[in-house]
Computed example of a mutant assay.
Amino acid sequence: MSSQTGGIGGVFRDSQGQWIIGFQGNICSNSPLHSELQALQQGLVVALNRQLVPLEIETECPDLIKAINVGNTSHNTLVNNCRRLMLQEKMLFLKHNFRQANGVAHVLTKEVLKKSKPFSVYRFVNPRVMFWIY
């Protein structure tokens, strides 16, 4: 499989749904699952570095949940890295969410694709995602 340039984005919210922190970055990916795994891995690193626990992860990608639960031979190293990071978290849940509820992550991903940008973490709401938050 050939790699293509892509983007990742994610957001952390508190138990009331309020923005805590967001992230985005450019990646090289060979499949949608590969992109989702990279987003999960980067999000877990941010969560660990910022001590954002307990953590509940929502994804619209059932293949991501399946890969974490039962493995994936094409992306075994990345799956194992995510599993290792997840074990470091306390009270971690990975569950399915519908695309409509994941609008902020999609806006962050689309924004990073418009320009080559290194990995960024936002402590404050990125103005380009305000529509999706409020």
Rank of each mutant, 00 (worst) to 15 (best):
K117N: 12
R83G: 00
P127T: 15
L48R: 00
F23C: 13
S120W: 09
Y134P: 09
L55K: 15
T77E: 11
Y122H: 13
V112K: 02
V53P: 00
Q16M: 01
L55Y: 15
L94E: 07
V46K: 04
Y122E: 03
I68F: 09
N69L: 04
L94A: 10
F98A: 12
H106N: 07
A67L: 03
V11P: 11
K95M: 12
N126D: 12
T5N: 09
M1E: 04
R13F: 01
F124L: 11
K114N: 06
G17E: 13
K114E: 03
Y122N: 11
N80V: 04
F12H: 03
G22W: 14
K117R: 14
R128Q: 12
R84V: 10
L55H: 15
T5G: 14
Q41P: 00
N102S: 07
N97L: 11
N49V: 04
V107N: 11
M91D: 09
E111P: 05
G10Y: 04
E36K: 08
V45A: 10
F131W: 11
F12C: 09
S35M: 07
I8E: 12
Q100K: 10
V104C: 13
L108I: 05
K90S: 03
V11I: 14
L87Q: 14
N102Y: 13
K110N: 15
S116V: 01
I8Q: 10
E111N: 12
G25C: 06
T59S: 11
G43D: 01
G10V: 06
N126V: 10
V79E: 06
N76L: 14
S3W: 00
D14I: 06
G7A: 11
G7N: 05
N81G: 01
K110P: 02
F98K: 15
M91V: 00
F23G: 13
S35I: 11
L113D: 00
Q51G: 02
H34T: 05
M1V: 04
R84K: 11
L87E: 06
H75N: 09
G9P: 03
N69A: 11
G7H: 06
L33G: 08
R84T: 13
G6C: 13
Q51S: 15
V45P: 00
I20D: 12
I21A: 10
Q100V: 09
S29F: 08
L108T: 07
Q38R: 12
L40V: 03
N126E: 09
A105K: 05
V129A: 01
P118Q: 09
M86P: 05
M91G: 04
G9H: 06
G9V: 07
G10E: 10
N26G: 07
F93P: 00
H34W: 14
K110W: 10
M86W: 04
Q18D: 08
W19A: 01
S31F: 12
D14Q: 07
V107Q: 06
R99V: 03
N26F: 01
Q100D: 08
D14K: 08
F12V: 06
N69G: 00
G103C: 03
I65G: 00
Q51P: 05
H96Y: 14
M86A: 15
L52W: 13
F23S: 10
S35Q: 02
W19T: 05
L52P: 09
L87P: 00
N76H: 15
S3Q: 01
S3F: 02
V112Q: 03
N80K: 10
M1I: 08
N97T: 12
L33R: 04
I27A: 03
